[in-house]
Amino acid sequence: MAAQNLQSVPAEPTAEQRQEQADREGQAYFDRIMAEDSRIEPKDWMPAAYRKTLLRQISQHAHSEIIGMQPEANWITRAPSLKRKAILMAKVQDEAGHGLYLYSAAETLGHTRDEMMDALIAGKARYSSIFNYPALTWADMGAIGWLVDGAAICNQVPLCRASYGPYGRAMVRICKEESFHQRQGFEILLELSNGTPEQKQMAQDAVNRWYAPSLMMFGPPDDDSPNSKQSMAWNIKRFSNDELRSRFVGMMVEQVKVLGLTLPDSQIRYNEDTKKWEHGPLDWNEFQEVLAGRGPCNAQRLERRREAHDDGAWVREAAAAYAAKQSARMQKENAA
């Protein structure tokens, strides 16, 4: 628009005013979508804090899938049969896939893949505390599948209805694949439990070690989870941490009977008044320590991720160089 136009129409709103107006309209649209429990899509207007919360949650979720490959990948070579190796490889490949679906979802919010990778490798990004515990025996593959993936499913099924479209769609895909993970873990434990006394003991030991960390996967208790309320108002989170945790305990308490094992918690009970399952106290100090980078395997996990990223650099570069060469050749041929 020419300058003389601006002079002749002094009442023209400034860029700032126009932005304010757009934000007001955007907020009204966003609020309507939330009230209807509809979905926000990438190019829609959204509050900056909503975008920020989602970016944090989705990228942390993606990092968790990628780091989560490690405890199990370590057992592929020592899995007790060819079938178990194949199953474990399929599972680890799934985790990689889940990480990639989620990175794609996060990218729609404005982070690049490189930024997220860098943050993870630099130790600036968080991922689920559960993957900083060691997988000591073969029975841990069972306990991880049954308890850790079981807790993940509990958490993730409601996320399929998250208000942000790309996140919900990624979660639908992930949940479909996750149920095989839990069942194969359950089977490993069942087989060990029906084996020799030593094998049964190994299964029980793994359940004992993974029980509390898997309960802590649902996050801090509700009165100590300041972001939960806002996430629920934004229809990202559908149930509170304690609610999901209680449901999970209720499921596990039945399933463990089929396994012929026990949960290492004498305080599990069904509260008839609240209609909720209750469990013994959890060590939230430990949770905070692990989250802060001081768990048993934090350094090891990050180091391994860094190595894998660096070792793979030549492959990425070679593929890009090949693609550039091919496209140059094509252009030359077309020009000739």
């Binding site: 942390q60 943050a119 990004a125 968080r126």
Partner: peptide, 23 residues
């Protein structure tokens, strides 16, 4: 190992780059 573990920032990741981008 524990001592060498990098400190994970307790805040959010990369706050600076999360500003809404132009579409």
């Amino acid at each position: 190992i524990k001592r060498e573990a990098p400190k994970v920032s307790t805040g959010s990741t990369n706050d600076s780059v999360i500003e809404p981008v132009e579409i």
